[in-house]
């Protein structure tokens, strides 16, 4: 068991190394002069030179890589080309709105999606099942920003239940935070709910056909207990997996949603960085989010034994 945990943690190293190499090569192997690409058409030679020095582009490739990884291991992601502040500091200032929204979204999604999936599997081939499936296909088919604008139009402009845009930290009052966070969270949650509900339904359908479910029912166990204790627990592993892999989807959604709702998080930071071609910030964001993705999936992998005691390593 301990051996497995150690091996699983060590397996993160090659993956993150390749991610780092990839991010490094992304800029360097682009056809043309990377400094010119970043600076744009209107750049002066002095600007080009400044970008080259700041990214260390004049050195040979392997020297650049060693320097870059050295800084990376010290936790330095470089300096923004626009504001000249360290990227880590910029991310640090902007991460909390994103973190709060993301956590609320994940909690909300699981609370909505899992019962939906369970219900759909329990009432297989009835209108409940079809409604859940229809919602799930629909959730995959509408761009996240269109959902956001529809929500704004319906709940903020027509019904005036919530403010149109903006953000308030939970420290300013939880009610205030919730009023501004609920629409972005629901927007983000749509596709995540679609994904999790679909997987929950499929996984539950498989488990509900098992003999021990029939046995439990024959013993007269209450149906809610059968569904949530006997079946859901056995169906949990694929659901956990999809929550983990869906995290990548969530990050893409965050970038878009923060623009729609004007939330000053790292998603907005990324969009501003793209528009300004602030490459160190884009690079830092890719590394950070990939690292998070790998970490979350590691935790989920290790949590399988908790959900399913049959799994032993």
């Amino acid at each position: 068991m301990l051996g497995y945990i150690i091996r699983r943690i060590l397996a993160v190293i090659p993956v993150m190394t390749i991610v780092a190499i990839f991010v490094f090569l992304l800029l360097r192997l682009t056809p043309g002069d990377p400094a010119a690409i970043i600076a744009g058409d209107m750049a002066t030679p002095a600007q080009l030179e400044r970008i080259r020095t700041s990214l260390g582009l004049s050195d040979p490739l392997h020297v650049q890589f060693v320097t870059w990884v050295g800084l990376l291991l010290k936790g330095e992601l470089g300096t923004s080309l626009i504001s000249n502040t360290p990227v880590t500091q910029m991310i640090g200032q902007r991460i909390w709105p994103t973190f709060n929204i993301a956590v609320l979204t994940i909690v909300l999604s699981v609370l909505i999606a899992v019962p939906m999936g369970v219900l759909a599997a329990w009432r297989h081939r009835t209108w409940v099942d079809y409604a859940v499936m229809a919602f799930s296909v629909l959730g995959f088919s509408i761009p996240v920003f269109v959902i956001g604008y529809l929500f704004i139009q319906a709940f903020a402009i027509e019904l005036r239940w919530f403010p149109v845009q903006g953000y308030a930290a939970p420290s300013e009052g939880f009610g205030k935070f919730l009023a501004r966070a609920i629409l972005p969270c629901l927007t983000l949650a749509t596709i995540y709910v679609a994904l999790i509900a679909r997987m929950t339904r499929a996984s539950m359908l498989e488990v509900l056909g098992e003999d021990y479910i029939r046995t439990a029912r024959a013993k007269g166990v209450k149906e809610t207990v059968v569904l949530f204790r006997h079946a859901l627990r056995n169906a949990a592993v694929p659901i956990m997996t999809i929550i983990g892999t869906g995290f990548a989807l969530l990050i893409g959604g965050v970038v878009v949603t923060e623009s729609v709702f004007n939330i000053p998080g790292i998603g907005r930071l990324t969009v501003d960085a793209i528009l300004a071609r602030d490459y160190p910030v884009i690079q830092g964001m890719i590394l950070l989010t990939s690292g998070l993705y790998v970490f979350i999936n590691l935790v989920i992998d290790l949590s399988y034994t908790f959900f399913d005691p049959r799994i032993r390593y």
Partner: peptide, 23 residues
């Protein structure tokens, strides 16, 4: 290993970076 790493990078961010660099 390479594919696992590629999958760890959120696809929207990767696409953004590629477009930002390639026009």
């Amino acid at each position: 290993r390479v594919m696992d790493s590629l999958m760890a990078i959120p696809s929207i961010l990767l696409a953004i970076a590629l477009v930002a660099l390639n026009g």
